[in-house]
Simulated assay, not measured.
Amino acid sequence: MLQENPLRAKYFHQTPDPESASSLDPYTVFLRLLQRQEWVAQEKAAKLLTAIIDSRPMKSLAFNNGILSSDPSSALQLASFGGPDPAEAHISSFVDWLIGQMKRPSAVNKSVPISISILAVLLRERGTRQLFLRAGGVQLLPSMIKSSNSPANSQLLYELCLCAWQMTFLAAGADALGKAGIVRPLVEVTRVAQKEKVFRIAMSALRNLLDRPELHDTLAPEMVDAGLQKIVITKQMQAWGDDDIVELLKYMDEQLKHGIKVLSNFDKYKREVASGQLDWSPMHTSEAFWKEHADKFEERDFMVLRALLKLLESSREVKTLAVACSDVGMFIVHHPQGRYIVNDLRGKELVMRLMAHPDPDVQKQALLTVQKIMITRDKLEFLTGSSS
């Protein structure tokens, strides 16, 4: 019925018969159906509930402005906007169910696409964005975008990025997205997207994050480090059918050229260690880098070195383990107290374990680092000096 004419959803909001004590509002009826075991019933109820919520006649100004009755500090604001939205509690329950489906799908390959498609509709309202943020939905988006980034999932990917984009219009939502690590997944979408609408919505979300003054200094360097500037330059050479994309790229190019500090090498190194994935870039092999920056590892009680040693303990990625072993060795060589500091932080024990690793490169790097831990400073200087 609603597929044929979505406007018919308004009939669910007709005033119930006051003479009937059994009259139920439409929200309660369909929220109950979401608890059925059969996915078919859940899916139909969810789609109907979406149409009913979207077509409700008494949308409050408070809800449209993101003011929730469940917020104790909002009483005065609610009154000034004419009171709470009658459907707020029902929308909240529905959002909770949708997030539950994102975490633990009832139907494999079906629950997540349906839930994201529904959220893309519901998040048009500022109040729903607040409910989604409060329920922890924002933290799920980065990993879902990353895992869905392929041409085969273009519609799901578009709607995931659409949800992220809508959340960037909420200050707290944008902040939560940044902290959850949304930048790199979105940048990667712009790198590989084949459909214009997917590229446009991902780039638009990045623009909104960049335009927030309170996030600019934190997220702009991350965008540069993720390669967004190169992507923008490359994409500007393409022919686009959408003039909005041309303007968007021009704007991002100007912002990234003139408004972003270029990361220092050590800033890049810290970010790479924090990401948990290391590669054989020049930072890891350059003697000049280590001579210049070895003393910076002392900052914040050797925070970066501790993170590096944590990778030796917890990472399962072969390249990361090999590079981390090499980095520990480089620190020992170039810091006056390197071998003692590494010993105090259990680094010797962690590296020695990796000498028995099944990968030959990890074994090799672990052996070289253990040698640097074991020999004295004067012999170490002689050894590294004779090999350079």
Rank of each mutant, 00 (worst) to 15 (best):
W97I: 10
K195E: 15
L61N: 11
F12D: 05
Q229S: 15
F199Q: 06
L256G: 04
P6G: 07
D71V: 09
D17N: 15
V232W: 10
P26D: 09
E38H: 09
E287W: 00
E196V: 11
V362C: 01
F12L: 06
L2Q: 09
A164P: 02
G136K: 02
K261Y: 10
N265W: 10
V323C: 03
A172M: 12
E222Q: 13
P105I: 09
P18V: 14
L160N: 01
M203K: 00
A366D: 07
L160G: 00
H293M: 00
T320R: 05
A79F: 02
K296W: 08
P336V: 14
L133F: 06
V232F: 10
K372R: 15
E19G: 10
A45T: 08
I373A: 06
A9P: 03
G173Y: 04
I245S: 13
Q238G: 00
C161D: 01
L308F: 06
R306D: 07
K10C: 12
K110Y: 00
F382A: 15
L98A: 05
E292V: 06
L383P: 00
L256S: 04
R8Q: 15
N149Y: 08
L177Q: 13
N153W: 02
E88M: 03
Q365L: 00
V333G: 02
I53T: 07
Q337A: 15
F63A: 06
S92R: 13
P105L: 08
H293K: 01
I116H: 05
R191D: 09
R191G: 01
G127H: 02
Y340Q: 12
G173E: 02
L210K: 00
P113F: 08
